[in-house]
Design a protein around this nucleic acid. Structure first.
Length: 591
RNA sequence: GCGCCCGUAGCUCAGCUGGAUAGAGCGUCGCCCUCCGGAGGCGAAGGUCAGGGGUUCGAAUCCCUUCGGGCGCGCCA
């Protein structure tokens, strides 16, 4: 049970009762009432702002209302003490049993500790990665991939039903360019295009994609198709080669994602949407609502493109939904714009029953957010909403030196290289050590360093250390049942040291971290919380180094040892639970 | 020119959707532990939350504005 929620519920019951007996006016807005841990632990275990946010609408003075509430709260079960402080805070101190109970719950639930019903099984669609299917993933994709996957995992833990989705951009000019590059590799594989001639094509940019990863693709096509398309006109081979090439690129990308531990539930093909007439449907739907019209846009102020000329275009009335300008849906060739496809795609998501949409994009797509949100509002009839998480780029460093990357020179770092070098778990964790909208340094040397500076190591070390204590306990107390379930019945009331109590309260905060991080769509909060837990645990361990009385295991006092082992096991459980959200394997020993 | 994101200790960053005296790590300085070094422990200094105005019981957080940085800005995806 989430202690904070439990007491908030009780507080709300109390407020309703007060409204019932006339102490408070009826119909007060209670949505701003919070129950939180106070900033300074000396203030107590819980603090509520209820008196301050309700005083004005109730026509009372904050301190007076606080006094009244305080008196009633003192009578609640588990409340040891309630006091008014500052401008009208009410600080509560709970009897130890409440916190000890949450430690027991943690041990009984194991990694499922922290699971929440906040989401109420509501469905959420998280779209992420969606990299063009033109080659393997590079390191720039890693952050969005991890943030999306972990956000999805976090929402699942918070009780949402999550679909992980990838939008395959297989309909634009990029995949045509891919097909041309593959066709050249196909001719090369058949000995019908010399290496020099290929180099010339690349140098003149007749071919856009020059990576070696296309060589095997050319060979496969040569095997499958023989030489029938060597001299055929482009119009004949392009669709078939494009389809085959895209499929193989998606295999490549799926492998890369698997190396990072990521699997998608749904891949949606842009080309299939277009072919099924979904773009036409969407435009017709919006047109019926008067949201499509022909008009002429103003040139962007201060930065008019050279070739600007006013021309009538088919536009979506995005400004009706908060966008800065109406957006074109059709090119002058008559073809749909990329945006038109995206409109159909997001309508498709809503049609599949999702009202909560999340997209994870690179920061360079920031300019795209408003128009997509406008689309979602327009097609969702105000029932659906879209949140976009923009990920800033990752600076790759090696011992402080920037890793040179240049697509032209072909030295860009692939996702696979990074994963192979430092491991999947390290990549995943590090990507979450910053807010998604802040730039992130990824230093090969630092992320594998064994030091307190390195949060991955520090958190893993705490887990390993906790496991190590458990192993020692098994040696000191042979034959004892030291399973978490058994430890849940240990004499945890013997945990009386202030540091122990503080750690117990910290562990009790895990369900709250899950809920607030899920609500804010901010998985990085979990990383910071785990670092806090690790720090508190390491600190407690270190105290035992100086003072034998504080050591977890005391051969002379089995009851106390088991109580402390319960706390240690609680630490391991919460860390494992948090790493589980990250899709990171907790280690049982460091090597 | 417009829009979005960002600006918090010397450095790297947190700050729980508006709460109490703004925190952590590293670095610096002092002390402890140690044969020495490394690692570790205790403590201290360090802040106009980029500047200014506003909203209210209360602002790093919300609004306006200035400055500074990043990204984007009609047929590319």
């Amino acid at each position: 049970m989430n202690v904070f929620n439990a007491y908030k519920d009780r507080l709300l019951d109390l407020l309703h009762a007060m409204a019932g007996d006339g102490t408070l006016p009826a119909g007060l807005d209670l949505s701003r009432v919070t129950v939180e841990p106070p900033r300074d632990p000396a203030h107590g275990d819980l603090a509520t702002n209820a008196a301050m946010v309700l005083a004005r609408p109730a026509g009372l003075k904050p301190r007076d209302l606080a006094e009244t509430l305080c008196a009633r709260l003192t009578a609640e079960a588990g409340v040891a003490e309630a006091a008014v402080a500052g401008p009208g805070f009410i600080n509560l101190r709970l009897v130890p049993a409440v916190w000890l109970g949450s430690l027991r719950a943690c041990l009984r639930k194991g990694e499922r500790y922290g699971d929440s019903t906040l989401g109420n099984s509501r469905r959420v669609n998280v779209e992420f990665v969606s990299a063009n299917p033109t080659g393997p993933m590079h390191v720039g994709h890693a952050r969005g991939a991890v943030v999306g996957d972990v956000l999805a995992g976090l929402l699942e833990k918070a009780g949402y039903r999550v679909t992980r989705e990838y939008y395959v951009n297989d309909a634009g000019a990029q995949v045509d360019a891919l097909a041309r590059a593959v066709h050249a590799r196909y001719r090369q594989a058949l000995g019908r295009l010399s290496d020099d001639a290929l180099d010339t094509l690349l140098a003149t940019k007749a071919i856009e994609y020059g990576g070696d990863y296309l060589i095997p693709v050319g060979r496969v096509l040569a095997d499958e198709m023989g030489d029938r398309w060597v001299d055929a006109p482009e119009a004949e081979w392009l669709p078939a080669i494009r389809e085959r090439a895209v499929a193989m690129m998606m295999d490549l990308i799926r492998d890369d994602l698997a190396a990072l531990g990521i699997a998608f539930d749904v891949f949606t093909s842009e080309r299939a949407l277009v072919a099924a007439g979904r773009v036409d449907d969407t435009l017709a739907f919006l047109s019926d609502k008067g949201l499509i019209y022909t008009g002429v846009l103003e040139p962007p102020k201060g930065k008019t493109p050279e070739d600007w000329e006013p021309r009538p275009q088919t536009l979506f009335r995005a400004t009706d939904f908060g966008d800065d300008v109406d957006r074109p849906v059709r090119k002058s060739t008559g073809a749909w714009t990329y945006f038109a496809g995206d409109m159909a795609y997001h309508r498709d998501k809503v049609a599949r029953g999702f009202q909560d949409l999340i997209n994870v994009f690179g920061a360079d797509h920031g300019g795209y957010v408003k128009r997509l949100q406008a689309v979602v509002r327009a097609v969702g009839e105000d029932q659906a909403s879209l949140d976009v998480k923009l990920c800033q780029l990752v600076k790759l460093l090696d011992n402080g030196e920037p890793v040179k990357m240049s697509k032209r020179a072909g030295t860009f770092v692939t996702l696979r290289e990074v994963v192979d070098r430092v491991g999947r778990d390290v990549v995943r964790f590090i990507m979450l050590t910053r807010k998604n909208d802040a730039a992130l340094d990824f230093d090969f040397a630092k992320v594998t360093e064994q030091s307190r500076d390195n949060p991955v190591w520090y958190v893993q070390y705490a887990h390993a250390r906790a496991c190590s204590v458990a192993r020692h306990a098994a040696e000191i107390f042979p034959g004892r049942d030291l399973s978490p379930a058994a430890l849940a019945d240990a004499a945890v009331e013997r945990l009386e040291a202030e540091e122990e109590r503080a750690l117990i309260r910290l562990l009790a905060g895990w369900p709250r971290v899950v809920e607030s991080a899920a609500e804010a769509h901010e998985p990085h909060r979990v990383a910071f919380y785990l670092a806090d837990v690790a720090a508190a645990f390491h600190g407690l361990w270190t105290k035992g180094k100086d003072d034998v009385a504080l050591r977890f295991l005391r051969p002379d006092d089995e009851t106390l040892s088991l109580a402390r082992l319960a706390l240690v096991q609680g630490v391991a459980t919460v860390i494992a639970s948090g790493l589980g959200v990250f899709g990171v394997q907790p280690v049982r020993e460091l090597r």
